[in-house]
């Protein structure tokens, strides 16, 4: 008797919503989304195909022509990659730039997390005057574009002889990423149960110990979200590195790729492979850690 009643209701609900819910998509929706996804990936596919084509093939026909004769081995080559990762006639060495990108990105991601986590702890669990006002300033700074800081910093770095050095970019990224880092971590820590921190205090744990042994392990999701944000942001940044690192020995991938765009003669065939080398790491990071990235975004992160 009860069972029938229940089935009856579920059926009624199912019938009452014919067009929504998982699996309810009609053919039109499926085809529409399918086409959109294809269009979305089309430019990437074009670049990927081009990157494996010889110079002659790239210049003599569009990338879509490979579908006419995909088995024609003469058009395919790995040479673009082997060339672009070493010294070549275009003067842009993406292998070197790849390492430089890591040198810039890793400290510029880890150090702000460390600094911001300490600050977020102080803002959340310590009793002192000032956090409220300071935090409003930090929230306001989230939307301020970092261009406001560049002219004086460039001048200051020039006077200190710091231009074109790694610490110059590290410090800039630490400063520019700090408001978002403190914001995300403090919001997360404010949601942690206060009782645990109180009991740690009663057990005689110092703030330093509580921070390392309790709060940092408990905050891993927030730390991970910010880490991915900052990693992608620094790796993909052009402006800061263009200004403070320039195009010399220390140049990073985005700046190098931008420099290569101007090639029209020799070296033009290297642009697609250089493009792929540039986007490879962020795409892998993104695909494997998507979950944390989405969590960070839904926590209301805005970066100016």
């Amino acid at each position: 008797m009860t069972t029938t009643a229940v089935t009856g209701t579920t059926q009624a609900i199912k019938q009452s919503k014919p067009n929504t819910g998982a699996g309810s998509a009609g053919l039109a929706v499926k085809i529409g989304l399918g086409i959109l996804c294809l269009l979305w990936m089309l430019p990437v596919l074009g670049l990927l195909i081009s990157s494996f084509r010889t110079r002659d093939a790239q210049l003599s026909s569009g990338w879509w022509n490979v579908f006419k004769s995909p088995l024609d081995a003469t058009q395919w080559t790995m040479k673009n990659y082997s060339q672009v990762l070493g010294d070549n006639q275009s003067g842009v060495n993406m292998g070197k730039a790849f390492i430089n990108s890591f040198i810039v990105t890793v400290p510029a991601t880890v150090i702000p997390i460390l600094i911001a986590a300490f600050a977020a702890y102080a803002f959340t669990f310590m009793e002192w005057r000032g956090p409220d006002v300071m935090f409003v300033v930090i929230v306001a700074l989230l939307v301020v574009p970092n261009q406001v800081a560049l002219v004086p910093l460039l001048k200051l770095y020039g006077q200190l002889g710091m231009n074109n050095t790694f610490p110059a970019v590290w410090l800039a990224h630490i400063g520019f990423g700090m408001p978002l880092a403190v914001y995300i971590l403090r919001n997360y820590m404010a949601g942690l149960p206060k009782a645990i921190i109180e009991s740690a205090k009663i057990d005689g744990a110092s703030h330093f110990t509580t921070f390392w042994k309790l709060i940092i392990p408990m905050s891993t999701p927030a730390l991970a979200s910010f880490a991915i944000f900052q990693f992608l942001w620094v790796w993909n940044d052009l402006l800061v590195s263009l200004i403070f690192l320039g195009r010399g020995e220390n140049t990073i991938l985005t700046v190098a790729l931008q420099g290569l765009q101007g090639q029209t003669g020799q070296g033009r065939e290297l642009i697609p492979s250089a493009g792929f080398v540039t986007i490879l790491v962020p795409v892998l990071v993104f695909l494997s850690l998507q979950r944390y990235f989405i969590r960070g975004m839904t926590s209301g992160a805005v970066k100016g």
Binding site: L47, N236, L238, L257, Q258, T278, I279, V283, L287
Partner: peptide, 10 residues
């Protein structure tokens, strides 16, 4: 996940 420079190249 792709930089603006990467996107422009693509």
């Amino acid at each position: 996940a792709i930089s603006m420079v990467g996107a422009a190249t693509i």
